[in-house]
């Protein structure tokens, strides 16, 4: 575990290599970064739940192909945001350790585009659905 030495020295090699040197920033920044990471993880979990719900709860309204498409889209979005949130967390941590500017979030436009795409597909099919 990484907390054997609170001073940050003598940490196990893998963790140190992942972080790429530098010095520990203000612990408040590290904690804020952790909370932001968790907010992204919860966003990813919401997409995951949405993907499951899209397939399980829409059987009365939409055909199997549309349900499958929307579900896989949402699950893929959950996958990319979930995985991407770790790399965002890591890149921020590295930037803070080296006192360089924080990187821009590429998962933010990904979330916006993905969510909009799913919404457009749903609206189109709701409008096209025969009553």
């Amino acid at each position: 575990m990484a907390d054997t030495n609170p001073q940050g020295r003598g940490r196990d090699g893998i963790s140190a290599r992942i972080l790429g040197g530098g010095t520990d920033p203000d612990p408040r920044f590290t904690l804020a970064n952790e909370r932001t990471f968790l907010a992204w993880i919860r966003t990813s979990l919401a997409m995951l739940a949405g993907g499951v719900a899209a397939e399980a709860f829409m059987a009365d309204f939409f055909g199997p192909e549309l349900r499958k498409t929307v579900s896989v889209l949402l699950l893929a979005l959950a996958l990319l945001i979930g995985g991407g949130s770790f790399f965002r967390w890591l890149n921020i941590e590295r930037a803070m350790r080296h006192k360089t500017p924080l990187p821009l979030p590429w998962i933010a436009p990904l979330l916006a585009v993905g969510a909009a795409l799913v919404a457009v597909i749903m609206v189109a099919f709701v409008l096209a659905r025969p009553n």
């Binding site: 990484a2 907390d3 940050g8 520990d24 612990p27 590290t30 952790e34 959950a78």
Partner: peptide
């Protein structure tokens, strides 16, 4: 202590689970 190493293990595990 005004110093804390980031918790790589926790974040990596949760992201991997998702």
């Amino acid at each position: 202590q005004e110093s804390m190493p980031p918790d790589v293990t926790s974040t990596a595990s949760v992201a991997a689970s998702v």
